[in-house]
Nucleic acid binder design. Structure first.
Lengths: 386, 386
DNA sequence: TTTTAGCACTCTAAGACCGAGAGTGCTAAC
DNA sequence: GTTAGCACTCTCGGTCTTAGAGTGCTAAAA
C-alpha cells in the first residue's frame, strides 16, 4: 500500500513535470529532467506499478503518464515541498492589504485580488459568517416618516444595516424606545438563536400599540437576520482560460457556469470549513516561513501532531457540479480569535500546489492581522489610519 | 450614399440571416429564405454594390457576405423591426422585479439577472450615480468608544453608511452635535459640491476642541464622498462562450478579461450616458408596446422627433479594449424623475438587436417603476410589503 | 533478484491530398 | 435592368501517410 522511497520520488517527479508542462510525462523525459540513477526501463517498470496502484493514469497506450486524483492526493499530503515567498513579494502583498480603507469589505476585496494575482488562479473569499456572533447593539434611526434605518452591531465591531418601512405613525422617540428594548433583551445572544419570538418578548414592555409594534419588530427581526448575509468575492476567473485543460470551450464554459453559482460554492466552502482541523499555531508576525506547510509528515518525518491550516480538494473530491477537473485549496481567516470566513483558490487539478499553499497561508495570516486591526480587537494600538 | 429600398431590404435580410445562423450568407440562400422576386444573380449584383459601399464584407472570395460595422449600424438605425415581448414573459419579468426585497441593491441584482436571462447575453447594471444628488441628512452613531457609524441619507431615500474611527474622547452627545451641525449646514447641497472646506465651515459653531473636531469632520467628509461609490453588477458572462464567434479561446479570454475591468466599463457607461438623448415619453403602465423603439424613421416614416431611449455601440465604436468584436446596448434608469444609473447588454456584434432593445427598454421601464416605489418617491401608495 | 538494453508495437499529431459544395464574378442573352 | 450559364475560388471534411514518442516484454547483465 505505502509507496517505497523510490516510487515516491518518481511520483513526485511525474506530478512536478506534469504540473509544469501539462504534457503526459514519459520515462525518458523523466530521467532527462531528474537525476535518477537508473535507466528509463526501470522507471517504466515503476511507473507501470504506480499505475496499477492507481496513482497514475494512461490517456492512451502509447503516451506518457498523468497523475490521477489519488496521485495528486499523495503528492499534496506527503510529497509536496513548500516554496518560500520571496521577501519582495511578501512585502508587496502586505503593503497591498495594509493600504486598504478601514472597512472589512474593502479588505476582502483586496485579499481576493491579491490571492488571484499571486497564484495565477481563481480566488474566492467569503465575507465573515456571523451566525454565531453575538448581537451587541441595535439602533433604529428615523429617516423620514415611514422609513427607518436599522443598524445592527455585532461583536468584533461588525456593523450591518438595513433600510425598512415602518408605519407612518411611529415617531422617532418610539422607535428608539423599541430599539433600546430589543437591545436590552437580546444583547449578547447569538444571531443564530434570535427568533421572531425572542425579539417580540424582548420588546414586550414598550408602550406602543400592539399592531404597530409588531410591524416594527418584524422589520427589526429581518434586519438582524439579514446581518449574516453571506457575500462572495471572486477574482481571476478568466485566468483559467489560459490553461491548456480549458482549451476546450465546453470545459471552459462548464467551469465558468459553475463559478457563476457562487452561492452554492459559498455554501460548500462553509460546509467543508466546519470540519477544518485546527489551525497550526500561526506566528503572528507574518514572517515568511519556509516550514509553514504541514502535511509533510511522511516524507520529512515532521509529524509533530500539527494539522494543516488549509484543506485541499482534488478533482472528484469536490462535490460541486462542473468543478471535477479542478482542485480547490481553502482556508479560513479570523476576526480576533474566532474563525470568521473562508477563502480559497480554484485552479486546474494540475495546479502549482506548493505555490498556492504558501500563498494562501501567507495571505491568510496577513489578512488575520489586518482584520484584527480593522475590527478593532486591539484598538489600543492606535495606528496611522488617515 | 443613401440606399434604395431594395438594397435596404437585402441588407436587412443579410443581417437577419447572419444573426440567426452565424454563417456568411450567400445569394442563393437569401432568395430561398426570403420572398425576393428577383433571381440570385440580381441579389449578387446588389450585394456586390453593398460591399463596395462598405455595408457588407467578404471573409474570402468564395463565401457569402457578412455585415460590417456600418451594415449593422444602418440596420440598427433604420431597418430593425422591434419585437413584441410576449405577455407571459412581460409578466414574469415584472413579477421577478417586484418580488424583490425593499432594497435598491437587491433590485439591481435582480434586474441584472433578468436582463441577462431574457436576452441571452451579458448584462451590466450600475448602481445609481449620486454625485448630483442632494444630501438630506447625516447622522453619526456611536458604536463604542473610538468607533462610530456615519449614516448619509440622500434625496430619493438612498442611504449609505460607513464605519469610522474617531478619537476616543468624543462622546455620543458631541457626535450628535457635530452631525446635526453638518446636516444643518449642508442639507440640500449636491454631493459634488461638498468639500472638506464646506464640511468644516458648516460645523464651525460646535463646542468641541478643534483637533478632535477635525478628525471627526474628516471622517464625515469621507463618508459623504464615499456615498456615491459606484458598483457594477454583471451577469451571464459565461453565456458568451456559447456563441460561435467566441469558439476561439483567445477571443473568449479577451472578452472575459475586458469584462473583469468592470470599473473601466462602468466609467465608459457613465461617459456615454452623459450624451444620451432624452428618453422618449415612457408610458408608465409598462405595457408591452410594439411601437417602443425609435430610430425607425427612415424605413417606416415615423420620424416624429422622438429620440431613442437607448444607445447602441457596434464593434469598433466601443472604445474599450477587447470588446471590439461585440456590441453594447445601453440605457439608463431613473430614481423618481432624474437619471440615476446606467444599464446595458453586451453581446456579439451578431446580436439579436430587436430582442435586446425591446427587453432593455421594457426592463428599464419596469425598473423605473419599481425604483420609484422603493425609493419612496410615491410613498402615498402604500403597497403590499407585509 | 534487480536492472538494463533492445525491439516490436501502438497511438497521436501533423501534414498532404482530394472531392464535394457553396458561393462568386463575369458575360452574353433576354 | 434582369437573368441564365459557366468557369473559377475557397473552405470543409474526409482519408492517408509518416514521424515521433512512449510503452511492454524479453532476455541478458549485474
Amino acid at each position: 500500500m505505502a509507496l517505497d522511497h523510490r516510487k515516491q520520488e518518481i511520483l513526485k517527479a511525474v506530478v512536478d513535470d506534469y504540473i509544469e508542462t501539462a504534457e503526459p510525462v514519459g520515462s525518458k523525459n523523466l530521467i532527462a529532467r531528474h537525476a535518477f540513477h537508473v535507466s528509463s526501463a526501470t522507471i517504466r517498470n515503476e511507473m507501470a506499478e504506480l499505475e496499477e496502484q492507481g496513482y497514475l493514469e494512461h490517456p492512451h497506450t502509447s503516451s506518457g503518464r498523468v497523475p490521477s486524483d489519488k496521485g495528486y492526493r499523495s503528492y499534496v499530503d506527503s510529497l509536496l515541498r513548500p516554496r518560500d515567498i520571496p521577501p519582495e513579494e511578501a512585502d508587496r502583498i502586505r503593503a497591498c492589504l495594509n493600504d486598504c480603507l478601514d472597512e472589512v469589505t474593502d479588505l476582502i476585496r483586496r485579499a481576493t485580488s491579491v490571492l488571484s494575482e499571486n497564484t495565477g488562479y481563481t480566488s474566492l473569499v467569503l465575507t465573515p459568517q456571523l451566525r454565531k456572533s453575538q448581537l451587541k447593539q441595535i439602533k433604529m434611526l428615523m429617516i423620514e416618516p415611514g422609513r427607518a434605518l436599522v443598524v445592527v452591531v455585532l461583536e468584533a465591531g461588525v456593523v450591518k444595516d438595513r433600510l425598512v418601512r415602518i408605519p407612518q405613525m411611529v415617531d422617532s422617540a418610539q422607535l428608539m424606545q423599541v430599539a433600546a428594548a430589543i437591545e436590552e433583551g437580546l444583547s449578547g445572544m447569538k444571531l443564530d438563536d434570535i427568533t421572531l419570538v425572542t425579539v417580540a418578548s424582548a420588546a414586550r414592555k414598550t408602550t406602543i400599540p400592539e399592531s404597530v409594534l409588531n410591524q416594527v419588530l418584524y422589520e427589526a427581526y429581518i434586519a438582524i437576520k439579514q446581518a449574516d448575509n453571506l457575500e462572495v468575492y471572486m477574482d481571476g476567473s478568466s485566468k483559467m482560460l489560459g490553461y491548456p485543460e480549458f482549451r476546450d470551450i465546453n470545459k471552459a464554459r462548464g467551469f465558468l457556469d459553475a463559478l457563476s453559482r457562487d452561492k452554492l460554492i459559498a455554501g460548500y466552502m462553509n460546509e467543508i470549513g466546519e470540519d477544518e482541523p485546527e489551525s497550526l499555531e500561526s506566528d503572528r508576525d507574518g514572517s515568511v516561513q519556509s516550514d509553514m506547510p504541514t502535511g509533510l509528515a511522511l516524507t520529512h518525518g515532521r509529524n509533530d501532531g500539527r494539522k494543516p491550516a488549509y484543506m485541499v480538494r482534488i478533482g472528484q473530491e469536490i462535490a460541486l457540479d462542473g468543478l471535477s477537473d479542478c482542485s480547490f485549496v481553502t482556508t479560513s481567516y479570523r476576526i480576533g480569535d474566532t474563525v470568521a470566513g473562508h477563502m480559497g483558490v480554484i485552479g486546474p487539478r494540475r495546479m502549482a500546489y506548493d505555490k498556492v499553499i504558501s500563498h494562501i497561508n501567507f495571505i491568510k495570516t496577513a489578512l488575520d492581522d489586518r482584520m484584527r486591526k480593522i475590527a478593532g480587537v486591539d484598538t489600543e494600538t492606535e495606528e496611522d489610519h488617515r
